[in-house]
Amino acid sequence: MLKVAGLNVRYGKSHVVFDLDLTVESGQMLALLGRNGAGKTTSLMGILGLLPGAQGRVAIDGADVSRWPAHRRAQSGLAYVPSGARCFPNLTVAENLEIAARRRAGSNGSSSTSSRGTSWTKERVYELFPKLGELQANMAGGLSGGERQMLAVGRALMSNPKVILMDEPTEGLAPVIVQSIGRLVLELKQTGVGILLAEQNHQMALKVADRAAFMEKGRIVDEMPAARAINSEVLHRILGV
């Protein structure tokens, strides 16, 4: 679904991400684990096409998008849930959702992606998060952390993506909300969406992920099934647990 090969990111003279290779299958989730400053966010932004200093191959559903600007990658099925549940604070909740609204990209409708055929609309997002429906005319800037996180996920869904890139969606949220995000992510996987999750919170991540990749100093140092990662030496070493 998403295939990244040899991604390198440089900021000016400093090299931040080195030869990143990763694959996210449809309906699967890859957790990208590492400390602050390991290069997780930079990797996501590089894949999304948001960094001019990124080089390497990125393919979505087999189509090479390496030379495409960010908005075309988004249109072809990549969605982003940024860290801190960033949203457009001066727009209403409804506008935040509308802005990403897009019909299902690549209408070839391969069986795996259209297992739950109907596409996402504002109404379906409100069904999923009734709270957002109540707040639809409110400015997003006034939402609580948890509500903003729902909005960020809802906005990503509105583009009917093939792959969602999530950057620390549990950061700063109360445990109850973290759990509901965990459940949501599991549900999303069921619909055939691929998920790339960058996290420091390995407990949540490893419970819902299929595979885990460990990042240190801009490189992926190890990759393995999530179940095995929970007790791995590399988890202990990198995240210090």
Partner: peptide, 11 residues
């Protein structure tokens, strides 16, 4: 509960 073992019972 709130911090150290906050995620024990997820999923």
């Amino acid at each position: 509960k709130i911090y150290l073992g906050e995620l024990e019972e997820i999923a």
